[in-house]
Amino acid sequence: MSGEAPMCEVDLGGGKVKENSMAGRCRQSCYERYIQPCVVELLGSALFIFIGCLSVIENSPNTGLLQPALAHGLALGLIIAILGNISGGHFNPAVSLAVTLIGGLNAMLLLPYWISQLVGGLIGAALAKAVSPEERFWNASGAAFATVQEQGQVSVALGAEIILTMLLALAVCMGAVNEKTKGPLAPFCIGFSVVVDILAGGGISGACMNPARAFGPAVMAGYWDFHWIYWVGPLLAGLLVGLLIRLLIGDEKTRLILKAR
């Protein structure tokens, strides 16, 4: 999804049939380049956040962070493996920002991707609420991030979100976007990075790493305490990863041009 959409040119001397055919191909191309990926990002985000929220709501005290970590990581890897070839499999505004900065996503699609991911987050969180027992839902704060309870935890939680999201964004950019380093195991490596992040940082910040994952449950539960951490931290991490990769490797378009020469 990194290139610009081709212009639709019509051969005026080719007759009405050829013009209609060109118009049809143009509509199909625009659909495949702009609408279809956004629909996939909405669907994938909804599925991922539905499973992630349920894993928190239904989590047994005996399993600690293991159940949410495995559910989030395995779900993300599976959904990327299924849908990633259509949209890139971001399902995360911070990841989309990093991928855009390195040239792996058309900048025109960044805002539509963000909207699709946030709407998907709302749908996923709403579905999780609909199927959960009311008592469990509210005991888990609707799977909203409630780890940070006081001002003294803010700096540590924000730092953790930045570092944890950087690992996730690096896994996506280097494992699935950069031509030199990407491979067929990228979906599982990305999912594994989420598992590692939650196991390592879940007790510090909740290990959100995804504004869409924070937004949907916050709306459903009406829980907004320190919510800004889960926007600023991941988006700042996406920005840092994008700039770092451009500095060290160059953006994807430039690298492909140099490779072709």
Rank of each mutant, 00 (worst) to 15 (best):
Ser2Val: 05
Ala5Ser: 12
Cys8Gln: 09
Leu12Val: 15
Gly13Trp: 05
Glu19Trp: 07
Gly24Pro: 00
Gln28Trp: 13
Ser29Phe: 14
Tyr31Cys: 10
Gln36Glu: 12
Val39Cys: 09
Glu41Ser: 07
Glu41Gln: 09
Leu43Arg: 01
Phe48Thr: 06
Ile51Ala: 15
Val56Ser: 07
Asn59Gln: 09
Ser60Asp: 15
Asn62Ser: 12
Thr63His: 02
Leu65Cys: 00
Gln67Ile: 05
Pro68Phe: 02
Ala71Cys: 10
His72Ser: 09
Leu74Asp: 02
Ala75Val: 05
Asn85Pro: 00
Ile86Leu: 11
Ser87Lys: 04
Leu97Gln: 01
Asn106Tyr: 11
Leu109Tyr: 00
Tyr113Leu: 01
Trp114His: 06
Gly120Arg: 03
Gly121Asp: 02
Ile123Ala: 04
Leu127Met: 14
Glu135Leu: 12
Trp138Lys: 13
Ala140Gly: 01
Phe145Asn: 12
Ala146Asp: 14
Val148Ser: 10
Gln153Lys: 12
Ala160Met: 14
Met166Tyr: 03
Met166Asp: 04
Leu167Val: 13
Ala176Met: 13
Asn178Thr: 09
Lys180Val: 10
Cys189His: 00
Gly201Phe: 07
Ser205Lys: 07
Gly206Phe: 09
Gly206Cys: 06
Ala207Val: 06
Ala212Ser: 14
Gly216Met: 08
Ala218Glu: 03
Gly222Trp: 09
His227Ile: 11
Ile229His: 12
Gly233Met: 01
Gly233Leu: 03
Gly242Met: 12
Ile245Cys: 10
Arg246His: 08
Leu247His: 08
Asp251Gly: 11
Arg261Lys: 14
